[in-house]
Every structure is written in structure tokens, then in C-alpha cells.
Design a protein around this nucleic acid. Structure first.
Lengths: 188, 188
DNA sequence: ATCATTTGCCTAGGACCTCTAGGTAAGCCT
DNA sequence: AGGCTTACCTAGAGGTCCTAGGCAAATGAT
């Protein structure tokens, strides 16, 4: 009886790759078991259930995304940091569609605390240091930025923009310009 | 053998209500059949398969949302129209979480053409008539607005904002202020 | 080195969902 | 009344999720 050497981490990694291949909604316990050449039931010693697997995947993706963003904004400030953040975010979503979908899962408070969600908010705040924005407006701005980034890549992936000839790239640059100018002159 | 009087439309309506109750991802053919007191197999004379059912639901929700938005912006212009649009959009998402989730489905080109997606874009354009914005900037602005609305309600629903004390309502108002000011002074 | 424990994967099986094939009864048309 | 279409049925195959209980491999204790 040869062992496949399963661990929760290896399962989560494989699930992430699987998500990018076949879509987050198609990440099933069965598919993952097939990938390792074992029976479904064997996975349940490592993960509690299918939902637990998806939560682990979400936590993994959030951490990866936070790493990418952190690297992108390191040593930059102001608009440069804003653009670097946004592009890192969007690039991750494009390169890892399944992982990105996972980051949109509703996490219960416990899982959210374990996740890198806090790092995301903190890094967004870091960008705002270049814009002379303080509480409570800072939180408003954090929410606006996050909403815009997420909304844009989410709609882009859903194909909402491709029905019009205007380049998606050009609109993205303009959106970042707009955000920069709104941050510089935040309405009182 | 009493008949339940099923039609594709009645199924879609019931599916929409079901989605709001138990979540879009839990809208199954079985659950719907149970609701009508009928066997699963009976639904397959009205819908092609489970995916088809969800697409119909998405199309229904997009149309409803477009109606709500159209009513909201009728007779308004400028910032008033912007705020009315945004609030109608957000209110629909809150009142009908399952239906709203459905609108986020990736629709294949055929289904998208049948949907009210075009009306949404057109209404967003209508708002911009109050802002002296023309192509190609108009498309950029449409995309920015849509992204921000969708991103905001989507993150709000995922609970991404509730980890911070600042009121979600206040941030929303500020986001709309910011969008208004960015539209008035669209960066050249 | 042997035995005990833990760990990893197994089989078996129940519950639920999806969907097809083919059948029968209800309602409409002539 | 007979025929046709429509609405719903039974039966059944195949997939996913998950639990219970078992055996064998790895690990650690003596």
C-alpha cells in the first residue's frame, strides 16, 4: 500500500493549481483525490470537508496576493505606489484566475483573522501616506481603492468590458489617473 | 396525476426567490423540484440543465436591476442621477443577494446579448450626459463607475468592510462624492 | 529487534444532485 | 371518440460529499 504523502498544505497547493486550471467552483474533493491517485475518503484525514478546503485555498491566495503587492509597492510612494499596487493586484487576478476567485470567498471571522486580509488593508493604508489623508477619510479611501480594483478586475474577467472596442488597458490607466487625482484632492 | 403548471418562466421566478433565500450557489434543480412538489426529472422539459436554469436566473436579475436603476435615474441628472443610480444598484444587491450573485455569472456571448447588460451600460452613459464627457473618455468613465459600484457592494457583502468601525454608509457617501468630483474634473 | 502507537490510506455505504430514456395520463383539436 | 401534444412520472446511471470502521506502513519505545 504505497502512500501518496498527502498533507493539508500539499492538498491546498494542488487545489490552488487546480482552481487556476478548471475554475474555483470546480475544485472538488473528488477532483483533488483523482489528481493524487487516491480515494476521496483519504482526503478527510487532512481537511475537514470541502468548505474547509476552499477556505484554505482562499487563505493561501490572499497571502500570495499580499506578497506580490508588498513587493510591488516596496520603495515606492504616491502615485507610483498606487499604480504598482493596482497593477500587481490585477496581474495576479489574470495569472491566477482560480486563486483570485478564491480570495472573494466570504470568510467567517476566524478564517478571516488567519488570513492576510489585514495585510491588504494595511498596505492600502501605506499607499495613502503619500496623500496626506487621515482618519476617518483614510478608511473611506481604502474602501474606495479596494472596491475599484476588485470591481475592475472582476468585471474584466466576467467579460463585461469586451463588448466595446475601447481598450481595456487604456481605461485602466485612466481609472488609476482618476483615483490618483481623487486622492490628491479628497473632497472635504 | 395533478399538474403543477410548470413553465420555464415560473421556474426562473421561483429559482430567483430561492436564490435570495438560500444563496445563488444553492439553487439546484432538486431544490426547485421540491419547491413545486414534483420530481427532478420533470423540470428537464422546461430547462435544458442546471446551468441553463442559472443563466435564466441571471438574465432575470439583470433585467430587474435595470428596471430599478431606470426608475431611479428618471428625471434626474448630474450628481443626483449618479447617486440615485448607485443607491438603486446597492439597494438591489442588499434586498436580493441571491439575484445579485446571479448577475455576476459569466454569461456566454449569446446569453449576454439576450440580457439587459446593454441597458446597464446605456444608463451609465446617460448619467454622464450631465458631466460633459465624450468618447473615448466616456467609456473609461462608464467602466470606472460600474467597477466601483460593483466592487463596493461585492466587498461589502463579503464582509470585507465590517472589520473596521468606520461606518460603511459614510464611506459609501464619500465614494459617491469622490466619483462625482472625478467626473466633473476628468483628468485630460 | 520487537512491540505498541500513530498515521495514511483503504473499503463500504448512505445521502444528495444531475440528467437520460422511456412511459402514462391530462387536456386540446378535429 | 380518436389522435396529438404536453406535463409529469418511474427507473436508473453516474457524480460529489462525507462517515464509520479496518488494515498496513511508518515511527517511537523498550
Amino acid at each position: 500500500m504505497a502512500r501518496a504523502g498527502l498533507t493539508a498544505d500539499r492538498l491546498t497547493q494542488a487545489a490552488a493549481d487546480l482552481a487556476d486550471e478548471v475554475g474555483f467552483e470546480n475544485v472538488t474533493v473528488s477532483a483533488l483525490a483523482r489528481h493524487f491517485g487516491v480515494k476521496d475518503a483519504s482526503l478527510y484525514s487532512h481537511i475537514r470537508n470541502a468548505h474547509d478546503l476552499r477556505v484554505r485555498l482562499a487563505v493561501l491566495a490572499l497571502a500570495e496576493l499580499a506578497d506580490r503587492v508588498a513587493e510591488a509597492i516596496a520603495g515606492r510612494s504616491g502615485k507610483e505606489a498606487l499604480v504598482a499596487f493596482a497593477n500587481a493586484y490585477r496581474a495576479y487576478a489574470r495569472e491566477h484566475p482560480g486563486r483570485y476567485s478564491a480570495t472573494q470567498m466570504a470568510l467567517d471571522p476566524d478564517a478571516a483573522a488567519d488570513s492576510a486580509a489585514g495585510r491588504h488593508a494595511e498596505m492600502t493604508r501605506a499607499i495613502l501616506r503619500g496623500y496626506d489623508l487621515w482618519e476617518p477619510e483614510q478608511t473611506d479611501a481604502v474602501r474606495l481603492l479596494h472596491s475599484t480594483f476588485h470591481g475592475y478586475v472582476s468585471l474584466e474577467r466576467a467579460g463585461a468590458f469586451h463588448r466595446h472596442p475601447r481598450g481595456v488597458e487604456a481605461s485602466w490607466i485612466r481609472a488609476l489617473d482618476a483615483l490618483d487625482s481623487v486622492l490628491r484632492a479628497w473632497p472635504a
